[in-house]
Design a protein around this nucleic acid. Sequence first.
DNA 1: ATAAACCCTATAAAATAAATAGGGTTTGTA
DNA 2: TACAAACCCTATTTATTTTATAGGGTTTAT
Lengths: 138, 138
Amino acid sequence: MLSKKTKYALHALTYLGKHKDEKTVLIQDIAEEHGISHKFLENILLELKKAGMLGSKKGKGGGYYLIKEPKEIPLSRVIRLLDGPIALLPCVSLNYYEPCAECKNEAICGINRVMIQVRDETLKILENKTLEDILKEE
Amino acid sequence: MLSKKTKYALHALTYLGKHKDEKTVLIQDIAEEHGISHKFLENILLELKKAGMLGSKKGKGGGYYLIKEPKEIPLSRVIRLLDGPIALLPCVSLNYYEPCAECKNEAICGINRVMIQVRDETLKILENKTLEDILKEE
DNA sequence: ATAAACCCTATAAAATAAATAGGGTTTGTA
DNA sequence: TACAAACCCTATTTATTTTATAGGGTTTAT
């Protein structure tokens, strides 16, 4: 399951996508819309900004805005940023690889091999679904 | 990512699959092979037994054994049993449904709709990969 | 000047996962 | 028939991760 962080990030991105004709959107507006703590959401938006998905403007009249086209933001990107690996095991993660302690020899581990296949197929799904798909459904 | 419980369960099932010509296998043998605590593994094997995947024999000379063909044990089954939902959000889980607190109206939520699609495609993968696929790779 | 907004780091609280403990029950074998 | 080896069960503790809070600092439009 996705963490609340990721879930909130998706809500925030969706909100920003729906209001992209407005120049900026306030944290407070998104937080109120979804009943999220202002401060918690702030941390999430900062991460999205550092990752290059959002821009922001300081000072009175400032706020956040999308700096990418919704179709350029795949679910895989958001999930990896806030939740970490998409792979089901550390030993098959592309971005967060770690060996499995209980595995004597990864090279001959059937679980490892199958999980690589699962990872590749799952990635295909999550790379193809983007913020645009979410917006189209609203 | 899968919990250690699920990972250990997969290792245990694989071990049992590789030794299915022997009548029974001891917890201790599996635990030693993968450096898992005997007691922790015991709890996992009991769950697998309750779920109808394993049989066991008490008393001296007893142990655990597979009671299903490896191809009848899909990953989805093991994951759901030990880890819970396969869906990425509670509001799209088939087996562990719960509404999302921050969602005002699930019926018009684009995230919900897209996550239903992701769930269906992910399920296809995890239902098609079975213990047999793991055993074939070893 | 000032208020409204973003930015940053650290810490606390809550929830979950992982492991341990301690015994009970069953059953094959000597 | 005693005993040891194995499964069976429940509860508790420990560790880790997630979630949330706190408290301020910096920037900028008006």
